[in-house]
């Protein structure tokens, strides 16, 4: 009896602490949502009046729209490059000897470990020589480098749960390596690839440090413009944009989850 009681108290503690952590993690994010519907011309919480005017400002401003477009194009291109590249890299590492794999894994994870500001400075000075600063190409390349580790790590963990004999079986049955990879392996690590693609998308969309240095002018990303806007004039447009970004991110996450679930029902 005492033990059961003790366990109940432990469970209560866990619930309290867990809820508190969630609260502090999510609340600052959610607070921008009511703020974005404020009628006042400065950021206030709780808002005293309700209006859509800041959304209107956002969607009618050519600067904001251009930045949004840049960010979305950069994110889509980053996904388009990082996903196949990272997946193939993960596949290659999975197939190579343990010694090569462990060394290469460290190199591949590097962009996550190294402080982004260092990468940003490095990329900036390299791009200065190559003439890639303030270009979309430059942003996409830098974002791809940042996103690759996420794709590689998720796809590698997916491959770990996959019986690789299946691909060997397919090859022994007459499938070329590429055909076996495409028809047998990829369908079974699809969810990992989709998760990797999602992380690549978010990595690019959220990225601010590199964008601060490398993007600009016509090709300024939305995060860069938001940052500048925070410094110059603090109005609720930022909150409206943040709300839109949250909606886009959550929509993408739900999309990946739904695809994943339909796949699980299949099996």
């Amino acid at each position: 009896m005492e033990q059961v009681g003790q366990r109940k108290i432990d469970g209560l503690w866990l619930t309290v602490v867990g809820t508190a952590v969630l609260f502090f993690l999510i609340l600052p994010t959610l607070i921008v949502i009511p703020m974005s519907f404020s009628g006042a011309s400065f950021l206030e919480f709780p808002p005293t009046s309700f209006s859509f005017r800041w959304y209107e400002t956002y969607f009618t401003s050519p600067e904001w729209m251009s930045a949004t477009k840049t960010s979305l194009i950069a994110a889509v291109l980053t996904v388009a490059i990082a996903t196949p590249l990272g997946s193939l890299c993960a596949y290659g590492l999975h197939c190579s000897s343990p010694r090569i794999r462990s060394t290469a894994q460290i190199l591949v994870i590097m962009p996550i470990v190294v402080p982004v500001i260092l990468i940003a400075v490095g990329v900036f000075s390299l791009y200065a020589k190559l003439g890639l600063n303030y270009t979309l190409t430059g942003i996409v390349i830098a974002h791809t480098a940042l996103a690759l580790p996420f794709v590689i790590v998720t796809v590698m963990s997916g491959l770990q749960n996959y019986d690789f004999d299946q691909e060997l079986a397919a090859r022994s049955l007459g499938a070329s390596r590429a055909y076996a990879l495409w028809t047998i392996t990829v369908p079974q690590v699809k969810f990992s690839i989709q998760t990797g693609a999602f992380l690549a998308f978010i990595t690019s969309l959220d990225e601010v440090v590199i964008s601060m240095l490398v993007s600009g002018g016509e090709n300024a990303t939305i995060t860069r413009r938001m940052f500048n806007s925070l410094r110059d004039q603090l109005d609720p447009t930022i909150a409206a944009i943040s709300t839109c970004l949250i909606v886009v991110s959550i929509a993408a996450l739900i999309g990946v989850q739904l695809i994943g679930r339909s796949k699980n029902v299949d099996n």
């Binding site: 004999d165 299946q166 060997l168 079986a169 022994s172 099996n267």
Partner: peptide, 14 residues
Amino acid sequence: GLGMVFQSYALFPF
């Protein structure tokens, strides 16, 4: 042109 049978069966589950 070989047929091969694996220890894990290696059937395609999907």
